[in-house]
């Protein structure tokens, strides 16, 4: 039953977004009455999305075939926000797609271009000035977080590259081991000779 609770929450969220967004309803026209099935295997969730021109229905574990069925994990699903990623992810075997590729791309494009004017929505509750300030603050925070994340990724990448440059290559390590063994043998031979000489 939990899966149906989850699907109803997702459905309510998407339909709220359709109502709030300036362009989502229009963008979803391209997928009207065409069913997309999404199977997210790492959380064992199977959802079917059907848009009827006004509302999105999200049904869990639906017993019907879809025009397009995609199977992936949660991480890959997040990457589908960019429709250009669809074919790349299929090539990388991270996304299994059956049916109409264009439908998956259209769904992806519609959601990635979703534009909600939060300032306008919040102004009904908070008033124009406060909602403008709040939205601007959130935008700044989002931008700063994004920049910080990019900076951390860049630093990590550079560190890894630098570390890679100074790290000993496995072949070098093999040669060193070989030389070490030769030195040990030579030292042992020398020790034997010294012991012989001392014995005389």
């Amino acid at each position: 039953m939990l899966i149906h609770l989850l699907s109803s929450l997702i459905e309510a969220t998407i339909n709220t977004a359709i109502g709030l967004s300036d362009n989502l309803e229009g963008d979803l026209k391209a997928v009207a009455n065409q069913e997309l099935s999404i199977e997210i295997h790492d959380i064992a969730l199977n959802l079917s999305l059907i848009y009827n021109g006004k509302k999105m229905s999200v049904i869990a574990d639906r017993q019907a075939s879809a025009k397009c069925a995609i199977r992936c994990n949660l991480e890959t699903l997040a990457k589908l926000q960019d429709p250009a990623n669809v074919t790349a992810l299929i090539r990388q075997e991270k996304l299994d797609l059956e049916g109409d590729l264009k439908l998956a791309q259209n769904y992806s494009a519609a959601f990635s271009q979703m534009n909600i004017n939060w300032s306008d929505q919040l102004s009904n509750v908070l008033g124009d000035a406060l909602s403008y300030q709040l939205v601007e603050f959130m935008k700044q925070r989002h931008l700063k977080t994004k920049q910080k994340k990019q900076r951390i990724e860049q630093v990590t990448k550079e560190l890894l590259q630098d570390e890679l440059a100074v790290a000993v290559h496995p072949i070098e390590l093999d040669i060193f081991k070989q030389q070490n063994r030769t030195l040990t043998t030579t030292t042992a031979k020398l020790e034997q000779r010294i012991n012989k000489l001392l014995a005389k």
Binding site: H4, S7, S8, A60
Partner: peptide
């Protein structure tokens, strides 16, 4: 509501 959603599925 969940029983009915299951029926629809």
């Amino acid at each position: 509501r969940l029983w009915k959603r299951h029926t629809i599925a």
